[in-house]
Amino acid sequence: MLHLKGAQRATVGGLMKIVFASLGKGVIACALCLAQFHASLAKEKEPLVLSPSSKWNLNYADDSCKLARFFGTGDDRVAVIISRFESGNSFHLAVAGKPLTHFSADHITMAFGPDGGSLNRGFMAGSLGTFKPALFGSAAHLLKRDDNDETEDDNYNHEEHAAYTLRDLQAPPAADEEAAIQWLEVRQKARATVHIELGSMGQPMAAMRKCTDELMTHWGIDVAAHRQLANLPIPTKSPGKWLTSADYPSDLQARGAQGIIQFRLSVDADGKPTQCHIQQSSRPAGFDRAVCKALMKRAQFEPAHTRDGKAIASYWRSTVKFVAGR
């Protein structure tokens, strides 16, 4: 994940006061008020349980595969979207709807269960069509992982990220474990948990895997061969140096515009980018142009290699976040 921020930034309970007017009956009355207050808090923190109100829908887009489903009804209706831009086990997760109105992108956790994966960093707030607000997370996993994903960390290491991406691509499907996942929870301290009854995720994730494998073949990628690679393209320098604050479009920064851009670079057998393709963008289009212009000018790689040491053409993909200065 590349974080690009405006020049104004360096980088990527309440108080209750009770006044006793008198003793005696006043104290008893106040005690009753406190009991009612704590009872109301307990009631507010009961989970909001949302059942499915539609079937899963899988969208075969030109540059992504998206699983979407609606849960709840009326003002409690939410949308859940799982998006993948390449084969592997990680995905982007979006949950949107009025029940999330008082949740903060800086303090939430999304967890799959029982005993599934969780995500508690890197969220951004926005909207999803008519569903507002929306919370967007990246590098989510349905299942628990043994390794740490550094893509959202300040300690991001591009070599480790390339190795992680290859492990994710080569990891065998865990169909039984995916089938055991039944729900998703959005949690935040002092807020009522939103509990979303997903149903078994076995068949939806199997369909998603088929979609992403087909997607990559449309890029000219031999998915089976890539699952046998020794390494994917590795940046020769930190990708964080490929884009700087100077690349933030000045007109968009002045307006406080922000954006998330999913991109893919085609990388030849010499490690040179040959094409920049925007897979998904929150727009405005000025962000898309800025990303591709900078990447095609500055990105350099060690090429992908087969296990017998032969350099081959491949791809490298990531995300850029444009965050306005405060």
Rank of each mutant, 00 (worst) to 15 (best):
F37T: 10
M201F: 05
E178S: 14
F85C: 03
N120A: 11
P273K: 14
D76F: 15
G88T: 06
L166R: 12
R77L: 09
D149P: 11
A254M: 07
E178L: 13
M216T: 01
F103E: 02
L252V: 02
P204G: 04
H195T: 13
L166F: 05
L143P: 05
H161N: 11
P273D: 01
C211P: 05
Y315C: 15
P133K: 02
D153R: 05
G26R: 10
R255V: 04
C211M: 03
S40Y: 07
S200N: 06
A311W: 08
Y315V: 09
G116E: 02
H195P: 10
D268H: 04
E214A: 15
V19C: 11
K66G: 13
P172I: 07
H218I: 00
S127H: 07
Q300G: 07
G117V: 00
S53M: 00
I261Y: 13
A125E: 08
F131D: 12
P204N: 02
T217E: 08
M1A: 12
T319M: 12
A139C: 13
A207Y: 12
C276A: 05
I82N: 04
T236M: 08
V323G: 11
R264S: 06
S266C: 14
H158Q: 08
K43S: 13
Q262C: 07
L23E: 10
V223R: 13
D146S: 15
V78M: 01
Q262W: 06
V320G: 11
M1V: 00
R289N: 12
P273V: 01
F287A: 06
A171K: 03
F91Y: 02
H277R: 13
S281Y: 04
K98Q: 14
S54F: 02
K241R: 09
S281G: 04
A21K: 14
E46M: 10
L215V: 06
P114S: 04
I18V: 15
M216S: 11
Y315P: 15
A299K: 09
C30K: 12
V186M: 07
